[in-house]
Design a protein around this nucleic acid. Sequence first.
DNA 1: ACCTGAACACCGTTCAAGT
DNA 2: ACCTGAACACCGTTCAAGT
Lengths: 233, 233
Amino acid sequence: MAGKQSGAQSKRAQRTEAAPQSVQEPGSEPPLSLERIVATAVELLDAEGIGGLKMRRLADRLSAGAMSLYWHVANKEEVIDLALNAVLEYRGLPQTVKSEDWRGEAVHMLEGWRASMLRHPWSASLLPQRALGPNILSRLELLSKTLSRAGVADADLNVAIWTLWNYVIGATITRASFDLTEEDRAAGQERLTRLSEHYPTIERSRLLLDSDWDGVFRKGLDFLLDGLVPTSG
Amino acid sequence: MAGKQSGAQSKRAQRTEAAPQSVQEPGSEPPLSLERIVATAVELLDAEGIGGLKMRRLADRLSAGAMSLYWHVANKEEVIDLALNAVLEYRGLPQTVKSEDWRGEAVHMLEGWRASMLRHPWSASLLPQRALGPNILSRLELLSKTLSRAGVADADLNVAIWTLWNYVIGATITRASFDLTEEDRAAGQERLTRLSEHYPTIERSRLLLDSDWDGVFRKGLDFLLDGLVPTSG
DNA sequence: ACCTGAACACCGTTCAAGT
DNA sequence: ACCTGAACACCGTTCAAGT
C-alpha cells in the first residue's frame, strides 16, 4: 500500500547513455545488470523465501563480488521493491476482446492477481507495507475501469477497490503461508485435537485440514461482488 | 495460521515449582519474569515496530543483561509468539447476555478482533505466518459457534471462517500499514497525480486519500455475511 | 535457580581503491 | 563506468562461568 516510500533511488537513474555492448564469450557470465539482478533475486526469493535473500548470496548467484550490486542498486530494500514489481507484471487484456461480461472480467483479473502472487509465495505479505509499484498500480487502474463499466458509481469506487484489495491480500497471504508449511499443518490440527475440549467446534470442522482454497476464494469473491456491483439487468 | 511451528519451547516448561518471592524493595526493579518480558516486548513493539524489537534493547528496558532473557525464553521467535498471543487476548462475552442477534454478535466480534490488532499495528502482519496461539483459537472457536447458531451448516463452516479470516486479516494489515506511514501517503498520492496519464481512474478517485476505513471495513463485512449467513426469517 | 560478559557467526553497508 | 576486498556496526545466540 502507500506503505513506506522506499525513497532510495539508485544512481542508475542518472546514467542514461548505454555502455558499449561487449560480445558474450561462451562460458563466461554476462555482465551485471539491473535486469539480471532482479531476475536472480526473484529466483532466490522463490527458492528460499524472504529470509533467504542475502546480498552476499545474491551476488554469489551472479558470480559477482558482494559489493558489486551496490553500484546498480541503492540497497537491499530496492532489490525487494524491484523483485515485487517484477512479479506483479501484467499483460493487459488483448484489446480485441470486447466482452460485455464485466463481472467475469473482474473475477478473471482478481484470480490472476492472486495466482501471480501464489507463484511467488513471498510476494503477497510484502505488498501491503510497500510503495505501490507501477505494475500493481496498472492492475488497480484496470480493475477500477472494469468496475466503473460494470456500473459502480464513482463515489463507490474506492470502497469497492479497497474491499476487494483487502480480501485478495488476506486470502493470498494466508494461502501462501499454508503452502510454505504444508507439513506443519497436520501438526497444527493434531495440536487442535489434543485441545479439543477447548475448541470443539473448529476441531470438529477440521479447519486446518479440509480446505478447498480456490473454491473458498471464489465464493468470498462472489459475495463481495454481489454486494459491490449492481446487478446488471 | 498453521504457519511454522515455532517449536522451540523454553526450558520454563520444565520448571514447575515456584521460587520464593523476594520482597520488592522500593526503587529496585522487580525480578525478571516471563510476564514482564512479554509485557515489555509488547511495549517495545508498539513503540518501534517489528524492526525495533532487539533482544538487547528488550533486556535494556528490563534493566537486565542481554543474555538474561534466554533463561526465560528459547529465542526471539518465542518472544514474538508470546507478544502476539498477549495482544489477542479475549475476554469472552458475558454469559448473561442472551442475545438472539447472532449477526450482530458476529460483527461485534470481528470488529473487536480488528480493533485489538490495530491497537498494536505490528500484530496483524505477524498472524498469518505463525502457529495459532490459544487466544486466536478461542476467537475462532467463538466465531464458529456464533455462525453455527446463526444457521450456517456444518459443511459451510470452514468456508465461512476462512472467508471472514481472509477479509479481516487483509483489511487490518492494510489499514495498519497506512497508519504507520501517514506522512508518506500524501507523497504516494502526489506521485499518482504526476503519473495521472497512466492511472486516470484511480487518480480521480483519490484512492490513497479519501478512505473511511472503518466504513469500508464494515461494508465489506456486511456483504460477506449477507452471502455466508442464511437470512434468518 | 537465575543471571552475566566475552566471544562467535552472520549480515548490510561504507570506503578507498582498483581497472 | 564498473567492480572489488577489507573493515565496521549491528544482532542473535552459545558458552562457560558466576551467585
